[in-house]
C-alpha cells in the first residue's frame, strides 16, 4: 500500500511545485515507484517543472470524469522510468473535481505506487480541500518570511482539523549569510513558531532557477539544493540524515570568490 503525501503551503510562490518535483525525483532515484499529481486545476505548472508539458494528452479532470483510464493519463518521466506525472487540467477550474473523487483516485493509485505526491494549489479553498482529501501526511513548505510562515501556521491548523496525521515542515530558500547577520529568521526560529517537526532545509540556490528553466529536477546533483532535496527524500524513507551545514558551504563560496580575486 502506497503512502499519499500532500505538499502544501498556503502562500503561493514558496516552492511547493519545485519541492514536489524534486522530492518525487529523489524517491524515484532510490527505486521507489512514485506518482506526482498536480492538483492545481486551471494553473498547472508541475508539468513544465518536470519538462513533460509536451507529452500531455489526458489530465486529472479527464480521469475523474472517466474520459480515460488512469494509466492513459499518467506520463512517464524522461529520466526515471518509475516516476510518473498526472498533470492537471488547464482549461477547467477547481470545482471540476470533488474531494470524494480525489479520495477515490489516490485510493486507486495506492495499489500501484509506493508514494503518491500531491502538489497542492495555494490558498485554503476548494483546491486545497481536494488535495488534502486523500492524503495520509503532509509536507508544509514555507520560506523564512513573515507572510509565508503565518500562512503556513494557518495551513497546519487546517491540516490538524482535517485529521491529516503527520505534518512535517520544509524551510525553503534559506540564506545562511542573512541568518548570520540577523536579517533572516533561522530554520530554528520558524520551527519554534510553527511547533511542528522539521524534515528539511533547502538553501536559496540559483541552480533551482536553472533546473526549472531546463525542466529537469536537480535532486541528487552536486549543488546545495540538490543535496537538500535528496536528504528530504531519504528522511521520508525513514533514514536518519544529518542536516546540511550551510555555514561550511558558505565558506566554500568565499574560497571560491577569493580564487577569482587573485
Amino acid at each position: 500500500m502506497g503512502e499519499v503525501i500532500v505538499i502544501t503551503s498556503g502562500k503561493g510562490g514558496v516552492g511547493k511545485t519545485t519541492s514536489t518535483a524534486n522530492i518525487g525525483t529523489g524517491l524515484a532515484m532510490m527505486g521507489k515507484k512514485v506518482a506526482l499529481i498536480d492538483t492545481d486545476i486551471g494553473l498547472r505548472n508541475l508539468d513544465v517543472v518536470m519538462g513533460l508539458e509536451n507529452r500531455i494528452v489526458y489530465n486529472l479532470v479527464d480521469v475523474v470524469e472517466n474520459n480515460c483510464r488512469i494509466k492513459q493519463a499518467l506520463i512517464k518521466d524522461k529520466r526515471y522510468p518509475n516516476l510518473y506525472l498526472l498533470p492537471s487540467a488547464q482549461t477547467k477550474d477547481k470545482s471540476a473535481v470533488t474531494p470524494e473523487q480525489m479520495k477515490k483516485l489516490t485510493g486507486d493509485l495506492r495499489n500501484e505506487f509506493d508514494y503518491i505526491l500531491l502538489d497542492c494549489p495555494a490558498g485554503i479553498e476548494q483546491g486545497f480541500k481536494n488535495a488534502i482529501a486523500g492524503a495520509d501526511s503532509a509536507l508544509v513548505v514555507t520560506t523564512p518570511e513573515v507572510s509565508a510562515v503565518r500562512d503556513a501556521d494557518r495551513i497546519i491548523g487546517l491540516l490538524e482539523a482535517n485529521d491529516i496525521g503527520q505534518t512535517h515542515l520544509i524551510v525553503n530558500r534559506l540564506r545562511a549569510d542573512m541568518v548570520k547577520e540577523g536579517n533572516m529568521m533561522s530554520s530554528d526560529d520558524v520551527v519554534e513558531i510553527l511547533a511542528i517537526d522539521l524534515i528539511g532545509i533547502v538553501p536559496d540556490d540559483e541552480h533551482i532557477v536553472i533546473s526549472t528553466n531546463n525542466g529537469e529536477p536537480l535532486t541528487g546533483s552536486d549543488c546545495q539544493a540538490g543535496q537538500a532535496y535528496m536528504n528530504i527524500s531519504k528522511r521520508i524513507l525513514g533514514e536518519d540524515v544529518p542536516y546540511l551545514d550551510l555555514e561550511v558551504t558558505k565558506s566554500f563560496f568565499q574560497r571560491f570568490a577569493s580564487i577569482f580575486k587573485r
Binding site: G51, E53, N54, R55, I56, V57, K78, N213, N214
Partner: peptide, 18 residues
C-alpha cells in the same frame, strides 16, 4: 507547437528546450 495532434496521431516538441 508544444503538441500537434492530427486525427489519432500525436507529435510533441523536442525535449531539449535550450
Amino acid at each position: 507547437p508544444v503538441q500537434i495532434r492530427i486525427a489519432d496521431a500525436i507529435a510533441r516538441s523536442p525535449d531539449n528546450p535550450e
